[in-house]
Amino acid sequence: MTQSVGDSSASATRITPGNALRPEDIAQATRQGAAKASEDVAEYALRLGDDALILAQRLSHWISRAPELEEDVALGNIALDQLGHARSFLSYAGSAWGKSEDDLAYFRREPEFRSAHLFEQPNGDFAATIARQFIVANYQFPLYRELTRSSDPMLAAIAAKAVKEVDYHLDHSTQWVLRLAGGTQESRRRIIAGFKLMWPCVGELFEDDELTARLGDAGVVPSSLRAEFDRGVADVFTEAELDVPASPPATGGGRHGRHSEHMGYLLAEMQVLAREFPGASW
């Protein structure tokens, strides 16, 4: 990112932490050459963007299928927020390679996606979705909060918008974990099963690698977030009288393009129309 982002010209003034930053602003800034991610920052933004994109794709399936109309709205909201974050991160990542958010979302192959396995896990029942969402929110909230201090101003700006929204996602999923765990026998059985199913994917979120080491102050070291995650989960689990599942961590690999069996179907559905008409405008 260059100095000009801090200038007082119309769109650039919005690209500061704390102000609303739209994916369109980032796309415009990158097109004008006002924001260009370094190769490492772009790779990092791709990871965060893919996490959010794949989760949005999963969550959006609930719209018109939720247990209550209020949840159609709530899960739709969370999906929309995640999609917004994805568009921002992907637009910025694409600036390093001259690619748009849509080039990256629709025309990469599975091994080129950098999302962790948790995000692509099937929705399952409402409890499994809530378990996944609770883990995601407890991971994303401290991540984005720390990222607001990134030495990369664009990452910091995207995180500043995202953290406020994820704060609400955290509240939403926490409220549901408490309700499902403390509701009926049936709901308790299901939320326990949901966490058991998702828990093997937790470890991958906090794995460091060469990229996160090279990023320095531009990124957030994943392992540095684990203690706060564990505390956040423990607080709610204590109140909900839930045990942290003993499930052993699964081998991840998402950050390096190795995905679960679920990913192929998700991408096939997401990309089908765009690939049917390559080069078309929508």
Partner: peptide
């Protein structure tokens, strides 16, 4: 889930959510 661009996906999601 099949919207052909992320912008269209975002608008469509918001629209269906409005209907709820």
């Amino acid at each position: 889930t099949r919207a052909p661009s992320l912008k269209r996906k975002s608008i469509l999601m918001a629209k269906v959510q409005d209907e709820a």
